[in-house]
Amino acid sequence: MIELTVNGATHRVDVDPATPLLYVLRNELALNGAKFGCGMGQCGACTVLVDDRPVFSCLYPVSSTAGRRVRTVEGFGTPEKPGPLQQAFIDRQAVQCGYCIAGMIVRAQALLERVAHPTEQQIREHMNPNLCRCGTHMRILDAIRAVAATGELHRAGEKGPAS
């Protein structure tokens, strides 16, 4: 049995400890946000936050979550009350097929929590690990910029350049 905390709730799952977190989130916890895209850390569709850092859940052993906080796009808001990035993505229709989008929102969240008002270049560099095949990039950037302008996701006291 492995215990993990996802979006504030603690779960116990009976899986092989080396199972990538992605499969546990999707199948054991029935969370749809993180997607399988490549399983190789090359596309970012599976991005989730672990202790506020964006990670590829397809390459994250579930056993590594011990004592850490996992957050997925489901934790950022609900259909009734979407979070700031979710709302910005809806408002700007920053979706085509949408398959990449949950991963995009999660990665952007990590940046905006850490950096209040990132520059355009910081945003683009930060988003580099995530691929979109539909070409929705202009709108994704636009949605991120809109939330960046408000600084509302920024966590006070956490400063530092984008990596």
Partner: peptide
């Protein structure tokens, strides 16, 4: 040749 960084994915012991 690309390889993802595992610094955030694996603990030192792992």
């Amino acid at each position: 040749a690309y390889m993802p960084a595992f610094a955030d994915n694996l603990t030192d012991d792992q």
